[in-house]
Simulated scan of single mutants.
Amino acid sequence: MGSALGRAWAAGGARVVTTVAGRSPRTRDLAHGLELLPSLADVVAYADVVVSVCPPAAAAEVMDDVVGATGSDRPLLVDLNAVSPTTMTGLEQRARSAGLDLVDGSISGGPPRPGGDTIVYLSGTRAREVADLAGDGIRATVVGDEVGRASAVKMCTASVYKGTTAVWAQALQTAYALGVLDVVLADLAEEHPDQVAAAGRRIAVATSKADRFVGEMDQIAATQGAAGASPELFAGMAAVYARLAATDLAAFPPEQAADLADLADVLRRLSP
């Protein structure tokens, strides 16, 4: 996601820099087309805007690393991670303690691509500055001046998108184990033919990212609980993704998982 956002902003005319210091060969490959600097300190020293895109569980650590790498310059920080409004408020406090402004952001949709329509929700007093950055395939939408609002949007939309995927994985794995998969798929196809057709790929790709989704489900549970809704549902979703993350299928990178369209094969790979 981060590399695709970088290429989209670069296509819009921005100079985009990043670093792959200490990262995996896969991450280095995904960073193709971006200008690489030796270290995070170099990135922070150069940039006017520093964007964080990482697994939710790492958001605070990354924020601390960015703040620690900041010298006399004062870049605008943009956190696009899938975290609760409360977590985002804590990240803003970390930034503010170092004299830095933070824009809250969240991403809806897949990695941006030329001509695509990935939505980036933004909030905070300087959100408009980020929204004005042109990006091919990015639709920036400011949802308010208050940090936490963009994260609130993500927590609600992701609960539907990723929660629904978890329900499909649970239901179809159960049907496969009990020998009634064909009948279940035929029934579901009456109302959801497109989703049935795409179920194998959808479950495979989600499983390849399941370890990252566990933290996101925890953040959703905390958000819903704070809003007076039941946190137990997404505590359960976190358990679903933790189980998926322990399967053989989780070892596939998302690029390879996207090629696994055979539902029965995908479900077989999820079996204990």
Rank of each mutant, 00 (worst) to 15 (best):
G144M: 02
G148R: 12
G148D: 00
R149E: 02
K154H: 05
M155I: 04
C156I: 11
C156M: 13
T157V: 14
A158E: 06
A158T: 10
S159K: 08
Y161Q: 13
K162I: 00
K162Q: 04
G163V: 09
G163Y: 04
T164C: 10
T165R: 12
T165L: 13
V167D: 02
W168G: 00
A169L: 07
Q170E: 11
L172F: 00
Q173C: 05
Q173K: 12
A175Q: 03
A175F: 06
Y176R: 13
L178R: 15
G179M: 07
V180E: 03
V180Y: 10
D182A: 12
V183W: 06
V184F: 06
L185P: 08
A186V: 01
D187T: 14
L188R: 11
A189P: 04
A189Q: 14
E190H: 14
E191T: 14
P193Q: 11
Q195V: 08
Q195I: 08
V196T: 02
A197Q: 07
A197M: 05
A199V: 03
A199T: 03
R201G: 01
R202D: 02
I203M: 01
A204L: 02
A204V: 08
A206N: 09
K209R: 13
D211W: 13
D211I: 14
D211Y: 14
R212M: 10
R212W: 13
F213L: 13
V214R: 07
V214T: 10
M217L: 10
D218E: 15
D218N: 15
D218M: 14
Q219T: 05
I220V: 12
A222V: 10
A222L: 12
A222E: 11
A222M: 03
Q224M: 15
A227K: 04
A227V: 03
A227P: 02
A227C: 08
A229K: 03
A229R: 09
A229W: 13
S230W: 05
